[in-house]
Design a protein around this nucleic acid. Structure first.
Lengths: 295, 295
DNA sequence: CGCTTCTCGTAAGCTGGGCCGATGCTCGAC
DNA sequence: GTCGAGCATCGGCCCAGCTTACGAGAAGCG
């Protein structure tokens, strides 16, 4: 019988790429992960990893085994969810991950709603870099997370995770010192999020589809700061609805036909977990009506 | 994350009924099983076992968890089967269980066939009481087993196990000192298998459907002995085709419109295991044509 | 070309999870 | 009542699996 703990390591390896990253994510030493994977390989009787240079990549047999591991872990997650269901009186910690603007604009109301429904629940919110949220969920550091996607940036489904339908959809705004379209800002300096982020790709693609490449002056992730810079005449920017909270005077916001959608994500199989489904419900009710995606 | 080893104990408990039996089946001490189940219950947070008198029964939550355990174990079995597929050159032990008459009449030819196909395979045959074959498969003491059923005795599917379609079907014969039907033997003494066996139920029902209850004189499981007793005038009996090997003189066999069907059984998920599917194929080719169930 | 850095593997040592055996308790059979 | 079957608990032991330390090989860089 294959050992599920070892299969889990293999799965994380498939997602994270290096043994060191797996060790980091699961709070082990790299040595332990290496040893356990060696044992797994031995009892599999088939090479699962190919040592290539100083890295390691999965063989086809290894990738195949990961598929099974995903299925097994999903089913175990389901079993855990059903047990939580059977435990009446929702209680205990619920670790929530979120991106920054939702943390400020939405999450407090969601927590208040949730506290009213289930006083025993202890929600713990962590602001998480969207790039790391999937790994954090899989590693069990988070139970549920708010994730977002832009029309222009297709979000590929993460294996091992599941997402809800969009909970709310925000329009995007062009923030400038005067009304106008994206195309009008061809010559202006732009304020974007740091490269590698979804927001960055989104802004670049929006400009590209307007026919130009943005001249990037500042790289700022916080929308309040972005708006302050816009007010100071430092450039123009694209800002989602939730990022706009009492905009400074002088900033003109033009609504665009572009949207950012937010969903809840969790480990596959955990959708039936009562704490998670309660969180999702609270999310739906706490979202301001204009943004809400009704079922 | 729930521990699969513990879930396995719970599943065995669901099938075997007592902790002591689980310990016996999996070669643990009862103490170890009890401790592990306690831990499982603790981390489940829900009562899984109900101590009732000196026994223990599963709660609804426990039974529910067993369903998940079955699914997980099945998937792990599949994963193991795929790995075995990837290991080219079928080799290693294959533990085969069989009921006695097949062991004598069919299995030698199957093993010969199999040895020709896969010289590296080391089949190990064990004669197993049909009542225990399911537990032995689940406990991992056997990999595949020949099991049979009678028309008159419906075989309910074993959870956690899978069976092939019938590999061969034997007619049943009435063994007596003169030709005749079952109904003709109303007054004769009967030779049956020991009570509790499938063969016993089969014979009793056959007589019942002929309108009488058999007067049981001898309880013998070995068909060669049964035929010798029939020849000696000690009674009449129902014997399947495979149980008839050079019948002693004086025995008259009358073919009946009743059948015994033989299938291969294995752990759910292991159907794709190359050694098991090779065994099933060898079984099909080694069975004498008149009995064979072609696809 | 040598230095650093990163990653993986191996060796050695320690710790605690989990097993066993013994004991005690409770229930049911006789 | 007595006995045995079955389960829980306690004490003790052992090895699976972890950490730390070290070494080897590959990439990047001046």
């Amino acid at each position: 019988m294959l050992d599920v703990r070892r299969l889990r390591l293999l799965r994380e390896l498939a997602h994270l790429g290096t043994i060191a990253a797996v060790a980091e994510a699961l709070s082990f030493s790299a040595s332990a992960v290496s040893q356990q994977l060696s044992v797994l390989e031995k009892e599999a009787g088939v090479p699962l990893l190919e040592r290539t240079g100083r890295r390691v990549v999965l063989t086809p047999a290894g990738r195949n085994l990961v598929r099974h591991a995903e299925a097994v872990l999903e089913r175990l997650e389901q079993a855990g969810a059903e047990l939580a269901h059977a435990r009446e009186g929702l209680a205990g910690p619920l670790r929530i991950g979120t991106y920054p603007s939702a943390a400020r604009a939405i999450v407090p109301a969601v927590l208040a709603e949730l506290a009213g429904w289930h006083p025993g629940l202890e929600p713990m919110v962590t602001e998480v870099d969207p790039a790391e949220v999937a790994a954090a969920l899989r590693a069990g550091e988070l139970d549920v997370a708010l994730v977002h996607e832009y029309d222009l940036v297709p979000a590929d489904p993460e294996p091992g995770l599941a997402v809800t339908r969009p909970v709310f959809t925000e329009p995007m705004y062009l923030a400038a010192r005067a009304p106008g379209t994206v195309a009008d800002q061809r010559a202006e300096p732009w304020i974007l999020s740091p490269p590698g982020t979804l927001c960055h790709s989104m802004a670049v693609r929006a400009c590209e589809s307007a026919g130009f490449a943005p001249r990037i002056r500042h790289r700022i992730d916080d929308f309040a700061t972005v708006l302050a810079l816009v007010a100071a005449g430092q450039g123009v920017a694209l800002v989602p609805h939730l990022g706009i909270d009492r905009p400074p005077p002088g900033v003109v916001l033009t609504r665009l036909p572009m949207y950012r959608r937010t969903r809840a994500a969790f480990r596959a199989g955990a959708g039936a977990h009562p704490a998670i489904s309660a969180f999702v419900s609270a999310l739906h009710t706490a979202v301001p009506a204009p943004l809400r995606n009704s079922a």
